[in-house]
């Protein structure tokens, strides 16, 4: 295998990224998503919501509703939870950071109908900074990566991504291969 997929496909990297950085053909060196541990908050919330009908069963029984109407309310409630979880998963899965040997792309799915893509070519990259995210971030090894670009090019951000040091290393190597200006 020439690629490594780890942490539920949140960190997919090419093993031979050093040599591939010099390739003329465009090749992706790295695809990152937010660390899976960051999804824990909405997963737990979904589980918590799933238990709510059990606590309100008596209240629902007291309402002047037919049995099939009560059943509809319960089905609708679980359908909403299902959609909530699916929606959150959509945002996690499609919020991508991609580093190819020619450019860096940041795809942000802000909501279902609004997706923002920022891309910059490697030669335009000025600086790469990483930011650690406290105790939890250090423990699970995730953080933010900020790629600053020259002029009016949009800045690229990879937020809460796993192995930030490794990502900086890959981008730095890529910049060196293309003779870019400065790396941090």
């Amino acid at each position: 295998m020439s690629t490594t997929h780890s942490l539920f496909h949140s960190f997919c990297a090419r093993n031979n990224y050093e040599s591939e950085a010099r390739s003329d053909e465009e090749k992706a060196l790295l695809i990152v998503r937010a660390h899976p541990i960051t999804t824990l908050s909405w997963l737990l919330l979904g589980v918590l919501f799933a238990f709510i009908p059990f606590f309100f069963a008596d209240f629902l029984g007291d309402l002047p509703l037919k049995q099939n109407q009560q059943l509809f309310i319960i089905i609708f409630w679980y359908a909403l939870i299902y959609s909530y979880l699916l929606n959150k998963f959509y945002f996690w899965y499609f919020n991508l950071g991609v580093v190819t040997n020619q450019k860096i792309v940041d795809i942000d799915a802000n909501n279902l109908l609004n997706t923002q893509t920022a891309a910059t070519i490697i030669n335009k990259v000025e600086e790469v900074n990483k930011k650690s995210l406290g105790l939890v971030g250090s423990f699970f090894d995730y953080g933010d990566i900020y790629v600053e670009t020259a002029g009016e090019n949009p800045n690229v951000e990879f937020l809460k991504v796993p192995h930030p040091s490794e990502i900086v290393k890959i981008i730095n190597n890529n910049m060196r291969a293309h003779g870019s200006k400065r790396t941090n």
Partner: peptide
């Protein structure tokens, strides 16, 4: 739509 976009990059990654 988004799956198609992502697939482009996934194919750039895999040999």
């Amino acid at each position: 739509k988004m799956a198609k976009n992502t697939l482009v990059y996934e194919y750039l990654l895999t040999d």
